[in-house]
Design a protein around this nucleic acid. Sequence first.
DNA 1: ATCAGATGTCGGTTTAAACCAACATATAAC
DNA 2: GTTATATGTTGGTTTAAACCGACATCTGAT
Lengths: 112, 112
Amino acid sequence: MRRGHLLSTPPYEVETALKRLGATLRTARLRRNITLAEVAQRIGASREVVGEAEHGKPSTSIAIYTALLWSYGLLDRLASLADPATDDEGLRLASLRERRHASTPQPLDDDF
Amino acid sequence: MRRGHLLSTPPYEVETALKRLGATLRTARLRRNITLAEVAQRIGASREVVGEAEHGKPSTSIAIYTALLWSYGLLDRLASLADPATDDEGLRLASLRERRHASTPQPLDDDF
DNA sequence: ATCAGATGTCGGTTTAAACCAACATATAAC
DNA sequence: GTTATATGTTGGTTTAAACCGACATCTGAT
């Protein structure tokens, strides 16, 4: 590849976090006693990519990871990953100034 | 595309969760008063893909999302998304039987 | 050791992600 | 209004993700 280096060689912490996430996804699946092929079919993906997600492959789409969480009933935690209410650093900064000079053309449809 | 439908048309809950995640990532960035171009450069990606992540694009690689969390100091939460210790359903099942018939060829290197 | 099931891997095809540059639009400040 | 900055969008290129089939390997049980 050699274009953006992010996908091939992400920061070490990112790589590590993804490996851990993958391992937890594998544990969740095994506990539910289903195979790679079975979850793959459920979420509409191939068996290989699910295996890659469980290995924490960085270049795999977030849809795969998310669909796995969904199939295990663990989806609710995802959306609150960067939850503004618990983003301490962000809260500190927000209290100073919410934003100096930015543009938010479409209010980034918050209708969910 | 039309091959796997997951990337183009994920389950509604998945789509929604990703949009919410994207919105929180945008909030986190704005609070830190940095631009798309700036975070993009920091994490080694293009400005466009960061914008897409903030819109919750499902087909974007998890590396982008993860690197954003990392740059905001919010990475620690990711790995515990499917944390076996708090996977209630998984715990229930695990107490019954840890696994009937599976294979874990390489112990999925847990060295982190 | 054998057998069956699960997972890993390889080769080849299709599709599109990620990139880049340039331009369009929107917002904020003046 | 104008200007400056940020974000959105478009077109084109490169690279590889995701797919599929077949085969290899590993594990667990017999």
